[in-house]
């Protein structure tokens, strides 16, 4: 219930299924685009400033995190052990940094790139695994 209230407070739906949502990342509130159709949770700083969420298209995304998805890199096979989150290992293979996010009581890890753009490790799993 608490998570649901948190959700209502900190996110809002658009005409499409695209939402924005805040996560605490390394202690700071960061806005993300949550795009279920594209299996994408990506930081809002990837969106061109003049673009609105409700009319957002993938061509409006410009950041390293997005580049890693739509210009998929060739990465070495990731060796997974002990139930590691595959997306976290893909992040490391992309030479980026895994950072933790909080969603109410829940955790969610993100992959952070040099331009400070972030993408959820689950999104990386979807596109790379």
């Amino acid at each position: 219930m608490l998570s649901f209230v948190f959700f209502l407070l900190f996110s809002w739906s658009q005409a499409s299924d695209i939402q924005w949502r805040s996560y605490l990342v390394v202690g700071k509130s960061v806005n993300f685009i949550v795009w279920p159709e594209k299996r994408l949770i990506i930081s809002s700083n990837c969106k061109k400033a003049d673009k609105k969420y409700e009319s957002l298209r993938t061509k409006d995304l410009h950041c390293t995190a997005w580049d890693m998805i739509h210009k998929k890199r060739k990465i070495p096979d990731v060796k997974i052990e002990g139930g590691q989150n595959p997306g976290a290992l893909i992040c490391e293979a992309l030479k980026a940094k895994v950072v933790m996010g909080k969603d109410g009581i829940n955790n969610l890890s993100f992959c952070q790139f040099d331009d400070q753009s972030l993408i959820s490790t689950g999104s990386l799993s979807h596109y790379y695994f």
Binding site: G83, Q84, I105, N106
Partner: peptide, 18 residues
């Protein structure tokens, strides 16, 4: 209720998270 979804990210502690 009240039990969080956790993320073990790159750690090999699936057993501890479970």
């Amino acid at each position: 209720n009240g039990v969080p979804n956790l993320d073990q990210h790159g750690m090999t502690y699936c057993h501890s998270y479970a």
